[in-house]
Amino acid sequence: MTAKPLLSVERLSVDFKLKSGLFRTRTLSAVRDVSFDIERGKTFGLVGESGSGKSTIGRAVLRLVQASAGRIEFDGQDVTAFGRATPLAFRRDVQVVFQDPMSSLNPRQTVGTTLGQAIDRHRPMTAQQREKEIAKLVDSVGLAAYQAQRHPHELSGGQRQRVAIARALAVQPRLIVCDEPVSALDVSTQAQVINLLVDLQREFGLSYLFIAHNLDVVRHVSHRIGVLYLGRLVEVGPAAQVHEAPRHPYTRMLMASTLVADPRVQALRTQERRLQIRAELPSPLSPPPGCAFNTRCAWADARCRGEMPQLAAAGGGVEAACLRLPAVAATPQGQLPARVDPGVRQIEEATT
């Protein structure tokens, strides 16, 4: 009998009501029918462009926004059924690391005070025990002992992010939602923070929901990856498979948009980027009919503009929502399909 996942998201949808005029409202579907699981001690990476709904999913898991439909289950408990009050035990078990630590750390408090407050809230202990625990936390994230007496503005960006990670660890969580935790850092610091997260996962058996826009970064920390476009999962599968052999055209576009040190790989990505359809991202308020990616896809045809694709097996344990999977798979990286739909040619010419 297989163990149940720590977190299970089933057909999650999140809608926001927006004012349109004095008496009218419009509905923004930020997340639509998304499902995935996070196993104990594993990492699920969510990747996509800005506005794809990644952070909204993380906030729904944290109960910072309300789910419009679907179910979120954490360790057998239906999170969406908690009501207005969130149990303290859930707040302890599920923590978050935000993109900008300066906006989530109190600038008037020292690092030690910040960590001490988290400990007092969820793990009451004597003052002597608390000081030992703070020293242990500071050391576990690679900071010097004296930095516990520093304020956030006295630390570098990478050090502040380590403090945010230490604060999450202070309550001994089981799941940490990492919302773009390295996107504001330079490349070398990104690598250090990612390696730290991997080491902490091995040491404490943590599970992560890792949210980012860079597929290369997500690959290094994740066991499975889900690719989001306009609130829908368009590809999901083992991290190595999604990264090395992307099935969906949108995943290929994300791969081509990131820079790598290997000149041969970079040359292929540059060529692929030059061949892509340069259409604007559609508005989430009025997504195109059929496949939402059809206005930017070189493989799209008339069927793509009229039929919504569903996730289907694409080989290697990967599922992809694409009606043109065989054609995409047959096209090497850096090349367009042999036959491009006339409607796509018109889009390409209008945007060049």
Score class of each variant (00 low, 15 high):
D301W: 05
E235T: 01
V171S: 05
R247Y: 00
S13M: 03
Q149E: 12
M125R: 12
A89Y: 13
V47Q: 04
N106A: 14
R130E: 04
L115E: 03
P107E: 14
T295R: 12
P337S: 04
F23D: 04
T86W: 08
A145F: 11
L209S: 07
A3L: 14
M125Y: 07
R273K: 15
V138M: 04
R247E: 00
R303Y: 00
E180V: 11
E348I: 15
D15G: 11
S103L: 04
T2Y: 08
H151V: 02
A329E: 12
T270E: 14
R71I: 12
Q241F: 04
R32C: 10
P287G: 07
R339G: 01
L200Y: 15
V234D: 00
D33V: 06
K132T: 05
N195G: 11
F90C: 06
P342V: 00
I225K: 02
G316T: 08
V171K: 11
D199T: 15
G70K: 02
L200S: 14
S140G: 05
R63S: 13
K54E: 04
V138W: 02
H248D: 00
T189F: 12
E235A: 04
G205E: 11
V138N: 10
R71E: 13
R174G: 10
D37W: 09
D216N: 11
P87Y: 14
F204W: 13
V344M: 09
P152V: 02
L115S: 02
E73I: 15
V141T: 00
P326V: 09
P284W: 14
T331V: 13
G237L: 07
T189S: 07
L325A: 11
S104K: 12
V47T: 02
Q129W: 04
F44W: 01
P326L: 09
H122Y: 13
L115I: 11
C322A: 02
L323T: 03
F90P: 02
Q241A: 14
P263R: 08
M125I: 03
F293C: 13
E319F: 09
K4N: 15
A127P: 02
R232D: 06
P249W: 02
P152C: 07
Q335Y: 15
V171M: 12
T251Q: 10
L254A: 04
T126S: 15
D262H: 15
V47R: 06
L233R: 00
P282D: 04
E133S: 12
S50W: 08
I165P: 06
A292T: 11
H122L: 14
V193S: 10
W299P: 01
A329Y: 03
T27G: 05
D100E: 11
V187D: 05
V236G: 01
A302M: 12
V234A: 03
L228A: 08
R296A: 03
T56Y: 03
C304N: 06
R11K: 15
L155H: 08
I38W: 02
R26N: 01
R202I: 09
Q149V: 00
G316L: 06
G112E: 13
V79D: 03
R162S: 01
S156L: 03
P246V: 02
C178P: 05
P332W: 09
R91C: 14
I277H: 06
A320L: 06
G51N: 10
L88Y: 10
H220I: 06
T25V: 04
A145K: 15
R296S: 08
E235R: 00
A261S: 07
R296W: 00
Q271S: 10
L230V: 03
C297P: 10
M253F: 07
A292R: 10
F204I: 09
G51E: 08
